[in-house]
Design a protein around this nucleic acid. Sequence first.
DNA 1: CGCTTCTTTGACGAGCCTCAAACTGAGTGG
DNA 2: CCACTCAGTTTGAGGCTCGTCAAAGAAGCG
Lengths: 248, 248
Amino acid sequence: MVVRRLRSLSALSDPELELLRNLGDRRERHASGEELAAEGGLSGRPRFILSGWACRQRVLPDGRRQIFSFLLPGDGLGLSRRPALELSTTAALTALETVDAQPVLQAMQAGNAPGLGRALATLETLEQMLLFDHLVRLGRQTAYERVAHFLLELQRRLEIVGLGDDQRFPLPLTQEILADALGLSIVHVNRTLQQLRRERLIELRSGVAILLERERLANIADYRLPPPRSAPASPTPRRNGLEDSAQL
Amino acid sequence: MVVRRLRSLSALSDPELELLRNLGDRRERHASGEELAAEGGLSGRPRFILSGWACRQRVLPDGRRQIFSFLLPGDGLGLSRRPALELSTTAALTALETVDAQPVLQAMQAGNAPGLGRALATLETLEQMLLFDHLVRLGRQTAYERVAHFLLELQRRLEIVGLGDDQRFPLPLTQEILADALGLSIVHVNRTLQQLRRERLIELRSGVAILLERERLANIADYRLPPPRSAPASPTPRRNGLEDSAQL
DNA sequence: CGCTTCTTTGACGAGCCTCAAACTGAGTGG
DNA sequence: CCACTCAGTTTGAGGCTCGTCAAAGAAGCG
């Protein structure tokens, strides 16, 4: 999972791969709904996600909530060492399994992991790109476009780490969570999904999404995918990212 | 300007201050509307803004535009060395004056500018906080709240660098730019501003904004200011940040 | 089976957008 | 000094998108 994600960002040397594969101990499990860190920077507890979904969000005093980003298997939490402010909270959306990423950061600081350094730098850039995409969705797209764009983003991200294929992927989110991410009401998310289904663009049932017509969706949402960084991921036994125990 | 901004983030040693003050050469001027860098990372041309306003934005193929953030005097462009992707473009909103920030980055890499390192790290964190604030505005606030929140943010940021006081500040933006930042139509921005004026919460004329009732605005918009980092800025001869020649 | 959580549907209204046009102010040139 | 233009602001009318309220199904779970 993590190996796969980082390799998609930069070539890694054998010792670097070895380091990643040895991260296996120091695993941790978190229940759905658990708060992983009060701060945005998560300073001091850098981790990788092995399985499950989390999100970064802010809750307003009147109960409104805005989700900033989703964290999927292979993504990192708190990898950038920044002074922490109350930027956002990170919460597990499903049961979650993580590993300590500290050894990776140490190797980088010691200077003997240039590939990992590049990979993590690119990871940060990509995260920022996702934030920008999200701003465009919220600021300049209709509900219909937002949902389509968001589903395409998830499809792509999950395919990269080997969860799902080019049209099918796990989607363990309630419509309330979608609403809080996309800046819509639950009811309107529901109606929008129905419309996409009625038009045979997507299918959605029991935690699995299927993009029936990716091309048309991409046109609707003006979805442009990031330029590929390295060799495309090789086919892998399909997993849904929500198993009890996940690989690195 | 730059000195003031960075000092508000971290204590700086005398040599560090000296370094900043010697940045003066290698100034550059940019006309309003000019594109400063095609990429988000701006890699290779790190700069500080001495005077004028810029923004980071993305333009959709159908002409819609979303502004991600505003860059004010004292802010940096392309300071983080990230692999550049087509994340966003940076454009000057007014005539702009910048200086090369390369010497600062070099001193940091050489390891002999810990204060500057902290300052720039905090700067990045604050930038991300602004992005999150922006996401909340776009996703979960009404037009009325958005405008109020945004004006409060600008007031605070400009006060920190000594432009304007606790209720008055320069605002060289057209309503079209406001609309593209706040995810609204020009017409609706106009109506919202009128409402705020009618209710005697703000005044707006010829490039200057006045927040008549900051407290009430802050309540309306649920605006919470970031925790202060160091001593409050000392009073300074007021400037509007748009002069022909600006100080460091 | 009965609870809770999630999804779905309907009715209604408010917020915001679009279109269109008038108005203002700052140049620019005759 | 007066058209004239051009960018920006303001106003009105009308309509679509999306939110709110309410309640009825489904679906998971002990």
